[in-house]
Amino acid sequence: MLRPASTAQEDIPVRSIVKLATPFAAAALLLTACGGTTGGSTDAESSAGGASGCPEGASIGFFGALTGPNSNLGNNIQNGVKLAVDQHNAKPDACQVTVTPYDSQGLPDQASGLGTQAVRDTKVLGIVGPAFSGESKVADPLFAEAGLVGITPSATNPALAENGWKTFFRVLGNDASQGPAAASYITTTLQAKKVYVIDDASEYGKGLADIVRSDLGAAKVGDDTVQTGQTDFSAVVAGIRASGADAVFYGGYYSEAGLLLKQMRDAGVTTTFVTDDGAKDEGLVTAAGAANAEGTIITCPCLPPDKAGGSFVADYTAAYGTAPGTYSAEGFDAASILMAGIEAGKTTREDLLAFVKSYDAPGVTKQLKFDEKGEPSDISVWAYKIAGGQIVADQEIKAS
């Protein structure tokens, strides 16, 4: 079960295992810091460095949905980030680091203000995120201009890497891999002959669905578009029925995907439902109902959490009392890269950015190394299925 969504934005405290070291004098740059995050930054203001050259109040940001309809995904990532920071802080003589949250609710219209806050808070040395593609399109140009490195564990729109942003990195494959893999699974594994494709008009959902449409070719027999926040899908269900489709692909997030699936099943439409990583959450099962969700296929360029390397699964479960969720391991890897840089003494934005560009080391999900556009060198796409009300790994799909 995924950790429940946060109900209020607040700073993320370093866990009790962390021992705060004696403060050192703050770097002159940090003395001029201005701005903060929504809700303030109590921990970032009070924590001090614990190692030579460590700036007082050193922080990394997490940028994503911590509240709102898709907050489960953001909280999964946040937990992975916090775990990586806690483990770093627990090391002897570690430079103490806090996590500063930027709760975007997954909304692009929140991203500009939050991105500006992150840029102005010079205690923030790097960002994990933004988590969603739409908010990334807004915030990443601000980070690029300021030289603030961002590593996203979940934003998969391919175009994000084509903007020339030197501060942009991601630890998982983009939708140019997931889309063809999803289309292949639908036509080869499911052997569907007629596929109805729907998107939620978001930067992420439409972008992915358009790739699936293209790769399906003649197998695509119908199209539709819905809106985020929509609750009545009767016209869409009627279109699916009329098309005679034997599979549906939905590009978007779990809130609308679950309601659409419920209304399909309530109307007697038994067409196989296939969706994406944005819907890979127990919120899909909750919205649709376990019986209605049974047999749903979900594609994701993310590693099954139980296959993560090292002691990650045990450590995460011990810390949060639940197994890792979607993107928890990717969030851990993204934060671990930033922690490795800080451990290496890269405690300015410029130095940390250079460190990330040349990074090449194993993470818990894969070997972590980036090309000149910030894309990962190691890419995989998995199919998951809902069985007995649980999302379980089905098989790895060969990524193109």
Score class of each variant (00 low, 15 high):
Arg170Asp: 08
Gly295Glu: 07
Ser41Pro: 03
Leu284Ala: 06
Val128Trp: 08
Thr296His: 04
Gly106Lys: 07
Ser59Val: 10
Val285Met: 02
Arg349Cys: 01
Val392Gly: 06
Ala5Met: 14
Gly289Asp: 07
Ser16Lys: 11
Val236Met: 13
Ala8Asn: 13
Leu352Met: 10
Thr296Asp: 10
Ile17Ala: 03
Ser255Gln: 13
Ile198His: 10
Pro305Met: 08
Asp276Leu: 08
Ala354Glu: 15
Thr272Pro: 06
Trp382Gly: 08
Gly258Asn: 01
Thr32Tyr: 13
Tyr102Thr: 14
Asp200Met: 09
Asn292Gly: 09
Gly50Val: 13
Gln395Tyr: 06
Ala290Ser: 05
Thr365Ala: 04
Asp371Pro: 09
Val381Lys: 03
Gln96Ser: 14
Tyr250Val: 00
Ala235Asp: 14
Ser202Thr: 15
Leu114Phe: 02
Val221Gly: 04
Asp109Arg: 14
Ser358Arg: 13
Thr42Asp: 14
Gly244Tyr: 01
Glu135Pro: 07
Val81Lys: 03
Leu368Asp: 00
Ser255Trp: 08
Asp315Phe: 00
Pro324His: 00
Ala308Phe: 00
Pro180Met: 04
Asp140Ile: 15
Gly35Asn: 15
Glu203Cys: 03
Thr271Ser: 11
Ser52Gly: 15
Ala308Asn: 04
Tyr316Lys: 02
Val313Thr: 09
Arg170Gln: 05
Gly39Leu: 00
Ser311Trp: 00
Val221Ile: 14
Asp277Leu: 05
Ile240Ala: 03
Ala387Gly: 08
Asp140Pro: 11
Gly164Met: 12
Gly80Val: 01
Ala323Phe: 05
Met1Trp: 03
Ala146Asn: 09
Gly147His: 02
Tyr316Val: 01
Gln390Cys: 01
Phe63Ala: 13
Asp276Trp: 05
Ala329Ser: 10
Ala181Met: 01
Gln178Cys: 07
Thr348Ser: 12
Ala290Gly: 00
Thr122Pro: 13
Asp360Thr: 10
Ser311Phe: 03
Gln110Ala: 14
Tyr204His: 08
Tyr359Glu: 00
Val81Ser: 11
Leu114Pro: 05
Tyr250Met: 04
Phe168Gly: 08
Ala26Cys: 12
Arg349Leu: 01
Tyr254Gly: 00
Tyr204Leu: 10
Ala242Ile: 02
Lys91Pro: 04
Lys193Ala: 15
Gly309Leu: 05
Cys54Thr: 01
Pro158Arg: 14
Gly268Glu: 11
Asp232Ser: 09
Ala361Ser: 13
Asp371Phe: 12
Thr42Gln: 14
Gly115Ile: 12
Gly49Ser: 01
Ala28Gln: 01
Gly134Cys: 06
Leu338His: 05
Leu353Phe: 04
Asn163Arg: 13
Lys262Tyr: 01
Gln191Ile: 03
Ile342Ala: 05
Tyr250Ala: 02
Pro158Ser: 12
Leu20Gly: 10
Lys220Ile: 12
Gly321Thr: 07
Gly57Phe: 08
Cys54Leu: 03
Ser133Tyr: 02
Thr116Asp: 09
Gly295Met: 08
Leu160Asp: 11
Leu66Phe: 12
Val99His: 09
Ile379Asp: 01
Ala242Lys: 11
Ser112Trp: 12
Pro69Arg: 11
Pro130Ser: 09
Asp281Asn: 03
Asp224Cys: 09
Pro324Gln: 04
